[in-house]
Write a protein that binds this DNA or RNA. Structure first.
Lengths: 182, 182
DNA sequence: CAGTATTGTTCTGTATATGGAACAGCGCGA
DNA sequence: TCGCGCTGTTCCATATACAGAACAATACTG
């Protein structure tokens, strides 16, 4: 297998567990999995079995595919910028929604030309500060704040200050316009 | 594990293999997996390892999540409400961010008691209309709009009108307060 | 400060998943 | 009828994932 696929899944496992506020021991006992197994698994030092994966996903209340990081692995769009597609759904009425997890290195900047009409982007900053929006009308957003813009004009986002930016970027395209990360 | 989860995955495996017109032996050798292992695996008499699953999925040219039985495992939190965790990350500074894909049946309503201080929730509606926010101060949002609230007070969201609501819910918790979907 | 949880780690014997060999059931050509 | 190539199955020795215990390192509590 990919040498670090186990590591990736372990990291996701740990992240989800901690996000739930669970200790390693409690999750292990809830999932009826050995504490040691879970520890080594989170550290990527194991090649888990389908049964243990199911058990852990079940105890976390998460579909197993969530733990299987393999959704379009970290796509690097520009230097200093990483975007990971979390989900892309197409509603029956044709609108598509893409959800990205975005990482901007300090100072990184991304600009994009206009998309089709009606495309709306939401940038929800979870760490650091950023400037985002249509070119010339950017606004500044910090953790827990969202910038929204219509991307039918040139637009972009950039990291402010000296710390990296983590954000959730959602792109909603009304009809058949394919969304691009940015 | 669920007794038939292995059987389900085995069936899918066999189906995709045959759809590719591959014999058991050729797939086994391409994936560098024992013939016997693959046979028993397809018959549901095995509890495969992540590495063998990856190897087989890779040789079939299929994302692993395709082979997993639980496609689109929607977690049902309340009747008429489905939430699927897309991602849960914990930043080094301790803040955790959870991103959910949310589905509300027409008229469905969800209320939640107060979480710890500093928790911020963002509800980005991608389809339908919803009312969301702190109890008594809800706002109405439609496609492409976001409702934001501090969830240190009772809060909730509900679908308006006669169509279902699709949304992206992001919960940002500053310290170690475990986030709950809602 | 000790005393006591509670954390996550490393260790160990056992169960089992693994690759490969041996096996059986075909179709086909001579 | 053989023989040969193919199919997929069952068997076996070995590697390893497993549960749990024993451990260490960090908190609370008196």
């Amino acid at each position: 297998m990919e040498p670090d696929a186990a590591a990736a899944i372990g990291a996701r496992l740990r992240a989800t567990r901690q996000a739930r506020g669970l200790s390693l021991g409690t999750l292990a006992s809830r999932a009826r999995v050995g504490k040691g197994s879970l520890s080594e698994l989170e550290n990527g030092a194991r090649n888990p079995t389908l049964s243990t994966l199911y058990a852990l996903a079940g105890a976390l209340g998460v579909p197993l595919s969530t733990l299987l990081a393999e959704r379009g692995g970290a796509e690097v769009t520009s230097p200093g910028i990483g975007a990971r597609l979390l989900d892309a759904t197409r509603h029956p009425d044709g609108t598509t929604v893409e959800v990205y997890l975005l990482h901007l290195d300090p100072g990184a900047r991304h600009v994009s030309t206009a998309h089709g009409p009606g495309v709306v982007e939401h940038l929800l900053v979870t760490h650091g500060r950023a400037r985002a929006g249509v070119t010339g009308r950017e606004i500044e957003v910090g953790p827990g704040q969202t910038a929204v813009w219509q991307s039918d004009a040139d637009h972009g986002y950039q990291a402010l200050g000296r710390s990296a930016v983590e954000a959730v970027l959602t792109i909603r395209s009304p009809s058949r316009e394919p969304g691009q990360a940015g």
